[in-house]
Amino acid sequence: MAERRTLGAAFALSLVVALAALPHLLTYSQQEILVFLVINVLLVMSYRFLALTGEWSLGHVVMMGVGAYASALAAKRLGFPVPIAMLAGAAVSAAVAWVLSFPLFRMKGFYFLIGSFAAGEVIRLLWKRFRDPFGGPKGLKRIPEIADIEWGVLQVDFFNPVAYYYFCLAVVSLSLWLLWRLERSSIGLTFHAVHWHDGLAASVGVDTRRYRTLALVVASAFAGLSGALFAHYVGAINPTRFNIEEMVYVLTWAIVGGTATFYGPILGVVMLTVLNEVVLRKMGLEQARPLVYGAILIAFVMFLPRGLESVVPRLARLRLRRPGSARA
């Protein structure tokens, strides 16, 4: 037991060191991709949080957009300091999700999927239609970045991808820790019950609707936070950035990685980003990206429906069996 704990601590420590060292081993453009990767990890993990209750949404990327727009407007129009604006963005996302939960949770399964898509499209069309304050089809530009820090020796310019990477890494790690705590609490267990036995859960007095709403609101808040992180780094957002195509990418990450474990979606988004940026870009096949994603989606659903995460224990067992095969 104690041995395992040391092993776990050693693993955690090496992970921290690796994540801290990582940007210094990359080129400038790879550092930028790394920033997006960290933001996408938060996006797909918040998506998984909703999936815990068994509902699959097609409006999650729009909730990311709600956070992005709200945070950008809070900083630009209302003059909020950027970190406060980001929190405001997450809060607005949560509030919009709470309002949407009333119509959407009258539906389940496939109807929820279509309903969430429709609700998302309505929000996207509102951004497109109302030039003031959303900027219409061209979106918002010149979104303020985080103010530079200049405390004597400590000088940080958040326009630099490495600095922004560390900032995102801190925000995302904290968010993931919160999501992890929630999942491991009795709330997470209730989500499990709502997913697999909602009738039974309701019969023992669980307000399943309330738990579904909680999952949607929390998931949307973190999606909104990821959108805010995105908006203040890129500096420009528009309705197209949050369309169904982007949603399909999130869906692909979740399906490729799997959603049963905490690390599954992270595995999915990391693997596909590497495939995207390293393999496809090197081979000059970026045009074929949707083709590759489509083929991957189909292949995984047909042949590995539980995702890459289902391969990991098998690999681990294989590794363990080798020295111990005489015993078995």
């Binding site: 399906i255 045009q287 990206r289 949707p290 489509g294 083929a295 989606l297 189909i298 659903v301």
Partner: peptide
């Protein structure tokens, strides 16, 4: 994927991406 709504959804989205790419190419 018969009678598997989520599976059917995902394979048809995959097909959508493939057909769009083929038309583009």
């Amino acid at each position: 994927m018969r009678d598997n709504p989520l599976g059917g959804l995902v394979v048809s989205i995959g097909l959508l991406l493939i057909l769009q790419s083929l038309a583009t190419l």
